[in-house]
């Protein structure tokens, strides 16, 4: 499991390592005893069966010890749950909406100020989409960005967020249930129509973090990746200002951002041809 790149993600990573360690130790003891038994108490080695069939002391011991181990694990896990559930003190809100088969991101507020009309669809990049067609003849290994293979984990327009800011995500869906999962953030959260779930992250390192939809949502469930681009605060603020300027042009354009299904106004600048068209 990845350690992740957010304030909370080491919780899941740490718990995974502790639990794995506990399991490995118990496994060595139990399987070790089994293998010793299998070699020592073979009929072919002349072993004669003993008659005993219980030992109260032993049974009490091996009921109690697991209980103690579980209490320790439960204590650790409860701490992680409590910090995860606490979305207070966040400085920014992003609304994530799952659709068949793309994500929509709407920037709701940043540092106490509401953001108008900054929102866009984010879906599988064209190169992956062409390669993944049945018998496309294209090589998945050839789908690369900066020498890093991005087959099925790249999008036309990533979610851009600042590092070092506690971001609250409000997550929902427009059609069926999806699940928003970026392993580097340490969690996934289901996107459910009619329900708004909340989760938070505070990314510590700038970078590009990739994930995928984690709840079966139909034929193209495997083809709706998530890309989060974490940038320094100043860069983010500049990006946000650009987006706002584009979204609120002086021209008498149609009210684009209001409808979730309409082509997102903000996507025009760079990736407009890609964001149209392809549906798997």
């Amino acid at each position: 499991m990845t350690r992740g790149a957010s304030e909370w993600s080491p919780e899941a990573y740490f718990l995974n390592n502790v639990a794995l360690g506990v399991c490995v130790v118990i496994g060595i003891l139990v399987f070790g005893a089994m293998f010793i038994a299998m070699f020592r108490f073979r009929k072919s080695r002349g072993a004669v069966a003993e008659k005993w069939s219980h030992n109260t002391m032993l049974e009490i011991v091996w009921t109690t010890i697991p209980v103690i181990i579980l209490i320790v694990l439960a204590y650790l896990a409860t701490g992680g749950l409590r910090t995860f559930a606490d979305t207070t003190g966040s400085e920014m809100t992003v609304k994530v909406t799952g659709y068949q088969w793309k994500w929509r991101y709407d920037y709701v507020d940043y540092k106490g100020k509401a953001i108008e009309k900054v929102g866009f669809m984010s879906k599988l990049d064209r190169e992956s989409d062409e390669t993944r067609q049945l018998n496309s003849g294209l090589d998945p290994n050839a789908v690369q960005v900066d020498g890093y293979n991005t087959y099925l984990i790249n999008v036309d327009k990533p979610l851009v967020v600042p590092v070092g800011v506690k971001i609250r995500f409000v997550i929902t869906a427009g059609d069926v249930i999806h699940s928003w999962w970026v392993p580097a953030l340490g969690w996934k959260m289901d996107a459910i129509p009619g329900i708004v779930n909340a989760a938070w992250t505070n990314i510590t390192e700038p970078g590009v973090y990739r994930g995928q939809c984690a709840e079966l949502c139909g034929q193209d469930h495997g083809f709706m990746p998530i890309v989060v681009k974490a940038v320094p605060k100043e860069e983010f603020e500049k990006w946000l200002a650009d987006q706002q300027a584009q979204a609120n042009p002086p021209a008498p354009a149609a009210p684009a951002a209001a409808s979730t299904t309409a082509a997102p106004a903000t996507a025009q600048a760079t990736d407009a041809p890609v964001s149209q068209g392809h549906q798997g």
């Binding site: 919780e11 899941a12 995974n16 896990a77 992680g80 749950l81 995860f84 969690w187 984690a214």
Partner: peptide, 21 residues
Amino acid sequence: TIGGFSGLMLALAPADFQYHD
């Protein structure tokens, strides 16, 4: 028992946020 071990790991909700699905 190996399946049980991974079951115990899955039971830990914060880690399950990663394991789930």
